[in-house]
């Protein structure tokens, strides 16, 4: 519904400006690469997911939230380390990705924080994670679960 409206408004705008771009802009052009998670110990500790989100389209896209059957409260969080070497973590704001740009969710920075796990995260298994965008679009990626000591998607 919202996708339809946004796309319609955009098409109207582009048409009136004389730019007849046929491509539908927005989350259809989002490509997710290199998704991975570490295995969890049980279900009490939160998990994390990492990936690169690429906007291959020609309009900005904004990631506004996450859903997954794996966790009741999945959120984008950001770890930061200050000048004194102290690390902290806080929910991140909405993430806007410019056309042709990508955002990396990686250890020690932005990550999908998976709170209130519904099942343990077992090495060798995978789970679906859905990214929600401000144009109403969704992108679902299957995230492989690697070992607890994994350092990247290829470990």
């Amino acid at each position: 519904m919202r996708t339809f409206f946004t796309t319609g408004a955009l098409t109207a705008l582009l048409s009136s400006a004389g730019a007849l771009t046929p491509a539908l802009a927005g989350s259809e052009d989002v490509v997710v690469e290199g998704a991975w998670s570490r295995a969890s110990i049980g279900m009490n500790r939160p998990g994390a997911a990492y990936m690169t989100i690429r906007n291959t389209g020609d309009t900005p896209v904004t990631l506004i939230g996450l859903t997954t059957p794996l966790a009741m409260m999945p959120e984008i969080h950001e770890s930061k380390t200050n000048a004194d070497g102290v690390s902290s973590m806080a929910p991140a704001d909405e993430i806007t990705i410019a056309p042709g740009e990508s955002v990396s969710l990686e250890p020690g920075g932005l990550h999908a924080m998976l709170m209130q796990l519904q099942t343990p995260m077992t090495e060798g298994e995978s789970y679906p994670l859905t990214l929600l965008f401000d144009d109403g679009g969704e992108v679902t990626v299957e995230v492989p679960i690697l070992g607890i000591a994994a350092r990247g998607p290829n470990d």
């Binding site: 500790r45 770890s79 250890p107 350092r151």
Partner: peptide, 17 residues
């Protein structure tokens, strides 16, 4: 701390490496 989902497993993995 072991309930740390991001920085700590990363540090432990780095040190293991």
């Amino acid at each position: 701390f072991t309930y740390c989902p991001d920085v700590c497993p990363t540090t432990l993995s780095d040190i293991s490496g």
